[in-house]
Each structure stands twice: as structure tokens, then as C-alpha cells.
């Protein structure tokens, strides 16, 4: 597996899972564009990548802003070249203070859909011409096991991630004839800053978890729901993303792969 000479774009690439994906692709030789709204962290990750693969760039990108997405596409070409690989990773779990509520507000629904689904569509739209022109490309969307089945506590988030899986399939069909593959990864339980907040939310919204700390909720869910009895890591997700982004997966498209220790089996 080798991405030498290839250009990858990772949205939400500054921190967490996105950062791990960016570092993994860089480790295999790719030049990486970090698209994020967190400038300081994006700069740190871009500098790290520069040291690994020799080429990186960053662009402040709000995926809900079409003009910003177009700016990202142009900035990618201008700085490191046309994109071979696009990783749609940027996502949110609700509107401000979502973790402090036990229910979803209209704003939670709107903003989550705006970023996780419409934002993904925006980004894909601005990069598809770069890829179709060369009849080659790899797109990997980060969904979630939350999108595999309706669950209590975060209905707006689950629904948005189910939409990501659906969007992945539609885009795969649209772009297949241009030799572009589109697949999704569903990360399982990863102890990230976001999950710490999910734990808070679950403790309020799900009676069985009442009174538990976020980490206790997390550990309980692993014990109850994950056959491998282990949490997953950003590196686990990054390895699966790298597989879909590589030539090894050139005849795989429209698929959604769970990286979840067996939480859901499909």
C-alpha cells in the first residue's frame, strides 16, 4: 500500500479520528490537505504531516459554507495538486450544549444534518470534477455505528449517520462510471473528546446509565455490546480508511464497513 505522489484531503483532519487518518495516509506517502475550522490544531497536524510525507497544506473550511468548500478545492490544487483521495470525516453530534440535554432540539436536528450530511455532499460536489476529469478517485466517508440502527439518546445523530450511509451508496452509483469508488466506515466506540460528551448525554437520557461518569458509560457499553471487549482507536479507523483509499480496494464501492469489534455485524 503506497500513496506516494498522491494527494489526499481530510475534512475535520485537525484532531481525533480525522488526524489519525491524515497521519496514516501521510505515513504511506500522501500529501495531505487538512480542512478544518480549528486553525490552531490544523496547523499542528499539517506541520506533523509535512515532516512525515514532505507535503501538506491546510484550509479553514466550514463544510456548511459552499463558498468555503469551493475555496478548499481550489486551494488544494494550488498547494499540493488535484485530489486523488477525499476523506469526508468532519462531523458534529448536535448544536451548542447538546451533551447537557437529555433530548434533541430542532437546532440539534438542523445543525447535525447540515454538517454531517449536507456538508459531506458540499465537499464531495466540489471535488468530484477534479476526480471525474482524470477518471480516478477514492472517497471514504466516515459514518458511525450509530447510523446502523436507531438507538435511544441521540436520534438526530443516528439519523444523520444513517443518511451518510445512504449518501455513500448514492454517490458510489453516481461516480462508478468515472472510476471513482465511494465507501464508508462506521467507527465503533472510541474514547475521544466527543465520546466524553456522548457519555454525559447517555447518563442523562438512558435510565440504565443514570449516575455513571462518561467513562463508566463507555466501559459498560464495551462490556455489554462489543464482542471483542475492547474499545476501538483512531488508528483502527485509519487503517480501514487506508485500505478503502488504496488500489487494493479498486473494485469495492458503495460498501459500509464497521470497525467496531463486532458491535454490529453486517
Amino acid at each position: 500500500m503506497n500513496f506516494k505522489g498522491q494527494v489526499a484531503v481530510v475534512t475535520g483532519g485537525a484532531t481525533g479520528i480525522g488526524r489519525a487518518i491524515a497521519l496514516k495516509l501521510a505515513d504511506k506517502g500522501a500529501a495531505v490537505m487538512i480542512a478544518d475550522i480549528n486553525v490552531a490544531k490544523a496547523k499542528e497536524t499539517a506541520e506533523e504531516i509535512e515532516e512525515i510525507s514532505g507535503a501538506s497544506s491546510l484550509f479553514v473550511t466550514d463544510v456548511t459554507n459552499v463558498a468555503a468548500c469551493e475555496g478548499l478545492a481550489q486551494a488544494t490544487i494550488d498547494s499540493i495538486g488535484a485530489a486523488d483521495i477525499l476523506i469526508n470525516n468532519a462531523g458534529i453530534a448536535g448544536s451548542a450544549d447538546w451533551q447537557t440535554r437529555s433530548y434533541s432540539t430542532e437546532e440539534d436536528w438542523k445543525q447535525t444534518y447540515q454538517v454531517n450530511v449536507i456538508g459531506m455532499s458540499n465537499i464531495t460536489s466540489v471535488f468530484r470534477s477534479q476526480m471525474t476529469r482524470r477518471r480516478s478517485g477514492r472517497i471514504v466517508n466516515i459514518a458511525s455505528i450509530a447510523g446502523r440502527e436507531g438507538r435511544p439518546s441521540l436520534p438526530h445523530y443516528s439519523a444523520s449517520k444513517a443518511a451518510v450511509i445512504s449518501l455513500t451508496q448514492s454517490t458510489a452509483l453516481e461516480l462508478a462510471r468515472s472510476n471513482i469508488t465511494v465507501n464508508a466506515i462506521c467507527p465503533g466506540l472510541l474514547w475521544t473528546p466527543m465520546w466524553e460528551q456522548v457519555g454525559d448525554r447517555h447518563a442523562q437520557a438512558i435510565p440504565a446509565y443514570e449516575g455513571l461518569t462518561p467513562r463508566e458509560v463507555f466501559d459498560t457499553m464495551i462490556a455489554e455490546r462489543i464482542p471483542m471487549k475492547k474499545e476501538q482507536t483512531p488508528e483502527d479507523v485509519a487503517d480501514a480508511v487506508a485500505f478503502f483509499a488504496s488500489d487494493d480496494a479498486k473494485n469495492i464501492t458503495g460498501q459500509t464497513l464497521n470497525v467496531d469489534g463486532g458491535f454490529f455485524m453486517r
Partner: peptide
């Protein structure tokens, strides 16, 4: 190649999955 991925330690947290290698005929 798909088998090699699933049989490698790169897929250490993946289990119980069925992966279609089918050019998009069926999407799961």
C-alpha cells in the same frame, strides 16, 4: 487483497463483517 486486509493486523478491530468485493452490485 480484501482477504489479505481482513486477515492482517490492520483489521484488528474488525470482526463479524461481510465485505462485498463486487464493483458496487450490492451495497451493504
Amino acid at each position: 487483497k480484501a482477504v489479505a486486509f481482513l486477515a492482517s493486523d490492520r483489521a484488528r478491530s474488525i470482526t463479524g463483517q461481510a465485505l462485498n468485493v463486487d464493483g458496487g452490485i450490492r451495497m451493504n
